[in-house]
Amino acid sequence: MSTASSRGWRTRALQDPAIGILVLLAVASTVIAFIEPTFATRGNVTNIINAMMTISFLAVGMTVVLIAGGLDLSVGSVMGLSAGVAANFLADGIPMPLAFLCALAVGTGLGLINGLLITKLGVPDFIATLAMLSLAGGALLYWTRGVPILGYMSEPYYYIGGLRRVVGPITIPMLLVVVIAVTVAIVLNLSKFGVKLYAVGSSSTGALHAGVRVDRIKIAAYAISGFMAAVAGIHLAGRTTTVPPSIGSGYEISAIAAAVIGGASLLGGKGRVVGALIGALTLTLTRNIINLTGVESSWQAVVIGLVLILAVLANQTWSDLARFVRPRPG
């Protein structure tokens, strides 16, 4: 390995915005571990990982959309509707694979509609996905008449919800997150689609001139986000063992926050899968620390707001600092 490439690697690591937030997390965790001894226990770490699964799935999907220069406000309610489909179909005695397939189809289909509205009808992404938020949320409410869906749990579903462990502390959703994260990362970094996705997000006019079919790439990005929302919904229905109609509300904000904390940019062209996971971890850690340290729960929203701004600031400061320390070659 040549010196040049190893220096390049080091520079890249230094400039990596994820490092900033990781440093912040490490410092915070160390401090909390001293204040609150139960924080660093195996049990608590498992809890945190289990609790971050839902947001992780959503954040990975959101990251793909953000890379393409879009925004998806509908993930929470699409997740809720998918969870409703899975739960209701199971409760009606439909076999599990079929029920899950339907849920995934609903999620992906709604994502597709988002993409079509945005690219073919020229509706701004904010508005299209905001409308989808009310549509999917309203559909679940109307379908359930506001009554939580119950009575769909079965032994395998407890595993999918992460309530039963496979081996040691490992649960199915943990394995699933790893599989999905690796797959999406490979697609983003090594496939033609990935290259085009980043190109579209960086400059759709540029991509258009370069012969990329911008519309197709964008539609695919929204479909992926819808698919991930459905995965999150199937998992969450298993974790909560009941699907209240409001199950997805507010999750879009967590998903966006996680993706952006992880380095994705709302301007497009930036973002990584590992960042999404780090973002999900940050949000989950914050809530866990508030609960453990006995901070009055009314402060929760304030702290999360501050963490959000601080995390983005840390990202930016880190990359500024790195650029200052070692000017980027070229």
Binding site: L71, I253, I256, A257, V260, S265, L266, L267, E296, S298, W299, Q300, A301, V302, V303, I304, G305, L306, L308, I309, V312, L313, Q316
Partner: peptide
Amino acid sequence: KLRLNDFIVTLGSLNVAAGLLVV
């Protein structure tokens, strides 16, 4: 001044303001 993204910053201050009202 700090050149952070408007969407995220105001999402953060949304949480802060809503949280302060709860407090």
